[in-house]
Design a protein around this nucleic acid. Sequence first.
DNA 1: TCCGTCACTTTCCTCTAGGTAACCAATATG
DNA 2: CATATTGGTTACCTAGAGGAAAGTGACGGA
Lengths: 119, 119
Amino acid sequence: MERSPNPELACPVAPVVDIVFSRWTTPILWALHEYGRQRFGELERLLPTITPKVLTQRLRQLERDGLVARTYHAEMPPRAEYEITPLGASLGPLFAQLATWADTGLPEVERARQAYDSH
Amino acid sequence: MERSPNPELACPVAPVVDIVFSRWTTPILWALHEYGRQRFGELERLLPTITPKVLTQRLRQLERDGLVARTYHAEMPPRAEYEITPLGASLGPLFAQLATWADTGLPEVERARQAYDSH
DNA sequence: TCCGTCACTTTCCTCTAGGTAACCAATATG
DNA sequence: CATATTGGTTACCTAGAGGAAAGTGACGGA
């Protein structure tokens, strides 16, 4: 979770990577950005292979980092709603550019791998 | 290394994350982009806390993915040079945008964390 | 003959993100 | 009474990334 003193000295991008890019944080942010405010169970359905433990962990981290806001209604059964904050939404253009790069970049990476793997 | 079937279904950004964003791949790409072609030992000096094992591992992966090119001179002592490929360089604007986001985003994240941690 | 240089390689270890499965509180409904 | 619902929690386990430290091969120089 904590970066050693060096990588970020050499690279201003490194600290952002820690906060935004991991297996599930990116899909969660994307889902909230695409489909708007969602309940816990709705997020589970949008990300069918995530487990409740991990979903809670990532949501808590995103909440702590100010990228996602949680609203809890102590009804019975309870209701919890998650939505993107303005800070989280400010990542939108970045995600869009990443998705654009993926369109042409991923196929090129795939070709490079096949070339490399066949000596 | 392999994504389960789902996260990328929900999020077109996820596959890119695997290729580009990890502890050391980002700093390595950044260093090669900033300072141009570098020898193995020069990279070690630019990233003082990386170990040779990990540097080799990440460079091989970047080479296989077509983001970095390796030139080996079988002299004695040997000489190996690494440089960014056009595909790797095409990530430049993205990294720039990430660095820009970091300027205002990271302090906001820091404030959010302090607010969260003091209940 | 021993030392140093360079680009690694090898072995061993630790740490953590994530997965599996079971459990829980509190209430409404049948 | 049992059951379903919701938003989690808990204990346990595994795989993989990364770190530490030592070794390697081939040669040139002292």
